[in-house]
Design a binder for these strands. Sequence first.
DNA 1: GCAAGGACGTA
DNA 2: GTACGTCCTTGCA
Length: 975
Amino acid sequence: MHLVLVDGSTFIFRAFHALPPLTRKSDGLPVGCVSGFCTMLHKLTEDLKGEDAPTHMAVIFDHSAKSFRSDFYPDYKAHRPPPPEELVPQFPLTRAASRAFSIPCIEMEGWEADDIIATYAVMARQAGGRATIVSSDKDLMQLIDAEGRVRMLDTLPRPGQPPLRWIGPNEVFEKFGVAPEKVVEVQALCGDAVDNVPGVPGIGVKTAAELINTYGDVETLLARATEIKQPARRQKLIDNAELARVSRRLVTLSQDVPVELPIDALVREPIAPGKLFPFLKAMEFSTFTRRIAGLIGADPDAWEADPELRAANAAPTGTSATTAGAAPSEVSAGTGVAGASGEDTPVRLAAAEAERIRALPFATDAYEIVVSRERLADWIADARAMGHVAVDTETTGLDNQQADLVGISLSTRPGHACYIPLGHAGGESDMFGGGRAEGQLDMRETLATLKPLFEDRSILKIGHNVKYDMGLLVRYGITLAPIDDTLLMAYALDGARNNSMEALGQAWLGHSGTPIKDLIGTGKSQITFAQVPIPEAARYAAEDADMTIRLWHVLRPRLVAENATTVYETLERPLSPVLMRMEGRGISVDRGILARLSGDFAQRAAAFEAEAQELAGEPFNLGSPKQLGEILFGKMALPGGTKTKTGQWATGADVLEDLALQGVPLARAVVEWRQLTKLMGTYTNALPGYINARTGRVHTSYHQAAVLTGRLSSNEPNLQNIPVRTEDGRKIRTAFVAAPGKMLISADYSQIELRVLAHIADIQALKDAFEEGLDIHAMTASEMFGVPIEGMPSEVRRRAKAINFGIIYGISAFGLANQLSIERSEARAYIEAYFAKFPGIKDYMDAQKRRVKADGHVTTLFGRRIPFPNATSSNPSERAFIERASINAPIQGSAADIIRRAMIRMEPALKRAGIAADMLLQVHDELIFEVPEGTEDAAIPVIREVMENAAVPAVHLTVPIRVDAHAARDWDGAH
DNA sequence: GCAAGGACGTA
DNA sequence: GTACGTCCTTGCA
């Protein structure tokens, strides 16, 4: 006997996350997950052949979130958000799917699927048979036995591994460091964040395994805990003995569930066409139906769709179809799902195209390596015939200002791609071997041949994060244009989730591609792409171009279907080349200034370090919050210590500042030391390392699709967090200088977010204040506290300012109290007063909270959607967090959209005005330019004009937008 | 060598 | 209370 037990949850979960959710029946019911479920179930029966073929089989489901475990530990699985809305109607359908395949499906109230699986597995073994558990749930690993009579099978396809992954005692040992029968002991100690099993705080899997291997089991360990040498570990175990026992009960599976069906009732039956086809037809899985029909030699047309499934599950038309989860999502209710059967709505066309592309197989060995001029010409001709081509460059590094070109891949249509190797190193050459590999076209000549195509305004070049390739190719004399970018398309559609090629491929193509580390390795032994053998490189590179063009085919129609075209075309696509040029220009940084500052800071830091150790009475590492906390709150026993979530003493700047005010000189010394070492570590010492040897300047990279509100982010180095608040910090800005004969101009929006808020929430009092050019914080204070603006105490204004910022951040009494070091009740009174004075604010905040829950997203003034897939989370603190974020996101995001529009228009405007200004940096509400000395006064009005009018004509703001701009030799002076 | 946590720089 | 990226220590391989 071989009993195969399928964990239904694993299949559902995987089907949901692996597949695009666009699949719907003609009546609008989402069935993508059911479809995936059927595919996986069928594939499993196909894969289990020969001695692995099941004689008995069942699919086991969870009945509900409640099980007997909640009775003795109410928090069990309490973190779990409710299932996404579109998944709910699919649950009964997955049961129906199992039955349609003639496989019994089992679920029982009060028991988790895992308990039922455990019970049946044990029954099979006691009957002298074998059991296979198809699941990826590690909680089931405790059931595996050493004789191979109970095994697990994970069907997740992982690149480079066989599709079936058998899990036996060895794999269990790999994961838990112990034999299967000890798994529960380890889990009892290390807990499980996902299921909310507490475990012993501070003990992870590794430590748990070590302890269990020494002591055998939890009870013995707890009994002999005093023998443990490490003091911290010993104490943790003693303190949390009860947690460990409860955890052990939680993770131990019941093996005596009173199951209704005896094992004999699970005998595998052949597929019954009379059961299967009515189901598949009701689900409208036409492709799958044909495939199965072919396999079992039946005529599906002999059966009608199951009328009950049809009627019972017809979705009410017009229901919001907001979705959640890792897969790309979001079909809004109004865009054509409702009603209409067979009509060619944009949504339907996009879904059909996605399905068509997904069905195309990958054949990585079929890609061509281009080594002749003739074939190169053929590919160029093909690109011209198509009017578009996907382009991907392979290089020696991640920094496109420094890396060398190694090869180029092209794809003109799905499955049809090539690789043009240009800079691969010779075979046996090691790092310094120098040789050039055989079988490559000449780089210069090839680039010259490609240049007309790459610069042809009538041929679209498609890339994934094409800014990288553009920035690289510019250095080789090629200006890639026009471009489309699948990364930016995905960002416009689904926001800042994981939009990597790998993730999008997995979600939309069912294929994640080859990880680059498979080719170049990782860490110390990493090689560059130039050292990768050409055939291997070609498979990887061409696959990337192939995936890019496939994604383009899927995402482009979605832009129209999901109303994201305007955002993509006006805020994303045109910005990309602008950022590429800014990155290429870089900014000049004065090494000498940084070196002098570094010396100064180091000296002063050393003095504070000595003082701190003197005051502490012992030498310790000031950089270790852990050691500091123990000295302050342990050794010195200072009052008022709080702990972080991991049980460490909190020693943040606010805590130390409090202590310093209470007369703890050690706290003051550490605050000063931290400031100085921060400035050294992150800026004065680190920045020189970013000066590019070729250009002598520092080139940051902007990430255009990283921030959920639509802001940019900057990295390597981050030039958006150069210090400005403290005097020492500002000195670092003096090292950012204009090139000889040039000047820097800094132009920044004044109070842009508060102005945007005044417009969006329509607050007349705020608008009037901006119109009159008042000090907005002082005005707020005078309104709220009835204090005249003339002679207002600075403390009063400070509080009003904190409240204004608080509003933008989605204020809470808790947060405001923290910020102002006041009682929470007082903070609450302030907020009430604010709402009373500006009632529109409360309306705005409530409206955003409603919207985010109803739609799963909020939008900026310019139509950018900012998704919050967990807006209806059952976790109250998560929900509150999302509410605050949904209040902030339209404000921060609209301001971000405005400066994007300004940046897109800036270069043409300067050119028209005949001003040779180069835009170098963006810092959220500030733009930095470099201009020839003497042209500052001409440049500033143009810059200001573009920035102040960036919103029109798309949006006519009902508040004035003001820009402050100054010129100086260095950034500090200009700011 | 790598990941997580704490801390801290900016808007 | 919002949004990021980087550095350092710690604790594991």
